[in-house]
């Protein structure tokens, strides 16, 4: 796997087996971590939640637990970072390409991005995980940081 995602993820921005029951809830949990760690402004969480309503980020992977990659405009970002959450029970996100379609989502990668030319590696690392069904299966059962490391390398 190129450019292991683990190097780009702050361990404190990883939430495993969350009980969140809505997309807003998991977004706010993960955004809270990014804010606490100094990646984003306090305006970031609201901006992501609002954006998700009009420009959703669910990605259909033909799985019972799909992936979402919520994010928002650079003005809310202080430095680039990624938060990752896995969900005990999938929550609903709308499909990025077809906002009328609702998808069950089991994995959320919350992206804090402010410079497209400098964050290609991070985006590619996230895409590599999304496109790797075995990695997603491994993440679903991950309960500790060590488990996550074993999957993401």
């Amino acid at each position: 796997m190129p450019d292991g995602l683990m190097q780009l993820l702050d361990p404190e921005a990883i939430v495993l087996g969350s009980d969140a029951s809505t997309n807003e809830e998991i977004i706010r949990i993960l955004a809270g971590r990014l804010e606490m760690l100094g990646y984003v402004k306090s305006s970031y969480a609201d901006a992501v939640v609002r954006r998700e309503l009009t420009i959703p980020t669910g990605l259909p992977l033909e799985r019972p637990d799909n992936v979402a990659v919520p994010h928002t405009d650079p003005e809310h970002v202080l430095k680039p970072g990624i938060a990752m959450g896995t969900l005990k029970q999938p929550v609903t996100f709308a499909n990025m390409e077809d906002p009328d379609e609702m998808l069950p989502v089991g994995f959320v990668f919350l992206l804090a991005i402010n410079d497209k030319d400098k964050q290609i590696e991070a985006l590619q690392a996230v895409m590599a995980i999304i496109q790797n069904p075995q990695a997603l299966d491994g993440l679903r059962s991950a309960r500790t940081l060590e488990d996550v490391r074993a999957v993401l390398g």
């Binding site: 990659v69 497209k116 964050q119 290609i120 985006l123 590619q124």
Partner: peptide
Amino acid sequence: CGTGIATSTAVNVA
């Protein structure tokens, strides 16, 4: 894409 910097960057590179 929605923001013009996130997923469109990934797609552009690919």
